[in-house]
């Protein structure tokens, strides 16, 4: 029997008066509810059954896992310090240069991708650049660039700069599209040209956020630089990869702790910089 909304409400009131009250279900139709539930359970069963676990291998690895956890209590910074230092230096330099280059290139692209200040053809070209840069994972781009430029930090730097362009330009463009139109109009009303408008109305509004985002991207680039080393693009990732493959967990633990410490440091300093630019 199908109830109208009013009758349903009346029914609920009668029930409540008799002390029977349940929360209204999120999905009203019981059939749909059942279907969704069955679908979810089926998916879970299928998905979980497709996870093949080689228990013998896990048991063998469990010891190694414990060893790895234990390594965190006694990280070994000393015996491979030269490798760690070289990797760290490469990662840090890669981070700085890629962020600078990436941001420098992202600013014009971002300006071009803002609908309210760029002409249509430029807008589409810039949106295209952003889309290409954002579609692919850093690691996949890194493989491509390693093939093109050979192993080493140069390929890593180009990868990170490329990824930075998409990230920064997109956020910058959105920021410019959101900016306060009245200020732009006020400056334009004084007879300012395109560049002058940009300098006096747009820049002051987006600058604090641009700096904040650059700091954030610096942080991301450092973390990513640890990853792209795995595919041969230099940096601390390569050191980490080697140490794990050699089962030198003490060294791996040391590298991971260094990464965590640097990320923490950059998080604190970026919150400081953001407060300072406000």
């Amino acid at each position: 029997m199908k109830l109208t909304e009013e009758a349903l409400s009346e029914q609920r009131q009668q029930d409540a008066l008799a002390g029977r009250w349940r929360r209204l279900p999120l999905i009203q139709s019981p059939l749909l509810r059942l279907t969704l539930l069955v679908g979810l359970v089926t998916y879970l069963i299928l998905a979980l059954s497709s996870v093949e676990v080689n228990w013998a291998r896990v048991a063998e690895g469990a010891g190694r896992g414990l060893e790895f956890l234990a390594a965190f209590t006694r990280p070994d910074f000393i015996s491979r310090w030269d490798d760690i230092w070289a990797g760290l230096l490469e990662s840090l330099t890669m981070t700085v240069t890629s962020t600078v280059i990436g941001v420098a290139l992202a600013v014009p692209v971002g300006l071009g991708a803002a609908r309210n200040i760029a002409p249509m053809p430029v807008y589409w070209v810039c949106r295209g650049i952003i889309a290409v840069s954002r579609t692919f994972q850093e690691v996949i781009i890194a493989i491509l660039f390693v093939v093109m430029f050979g192993f080493g930090p140069f390929a890593g730097m180009i990868t990170l700069a490329f990824a930075t362009i998409g990230f920064m330009a997109k956020l910058l463009a959105e920021d410019i599209e959101d900016l306060d139109e009245r200020q732009v109009e006020a400056v334009r009303a004084t007879g300012a040209g395109w560049w002058q408008t940009l300098n006096h109305a747009v820049q002051p509004q987006v600058m604090p956020r641009l700096i904040g985002l650059s700091m954030y991207r610096l942080d991301i680039n450092f973390r990513e630089s640890a990853v792209i080393g795995i595919v041969g693009a230099g940096g601390i990732g390569a050191t980490l990869n080697t140490s794990i493959n050699r089962y030198e967990y003490d060294t791996s633990a040391a590298v991971l702790l260094i990464i965590i410490a640097i990320v923490l440091l950059s998080e604190y300093s970026s919150s400081f910089v953001r407060r300072w630019t406000q």
């Binding site: 009131q13 409540a16 008066l17 008799a18 002390g19 009250w21 349940r22 929360r23 209204l24």
Partner: peptide
């Protein structure tokens, strides 16, 4: 789980009636 005792539900509804909002229950 919203499984309140029956007496509590009755009392809650009485109170809603008392303040004039029985229809707003849901």
């Amino acid at each position: 789980l919203r499984r309140y005792p029956q007496s509590a539900v009755v009392e809650a509804f009485r109170l809603l009636e008392r303040v004039g909002l029985p229809h707003a229950l849901d």
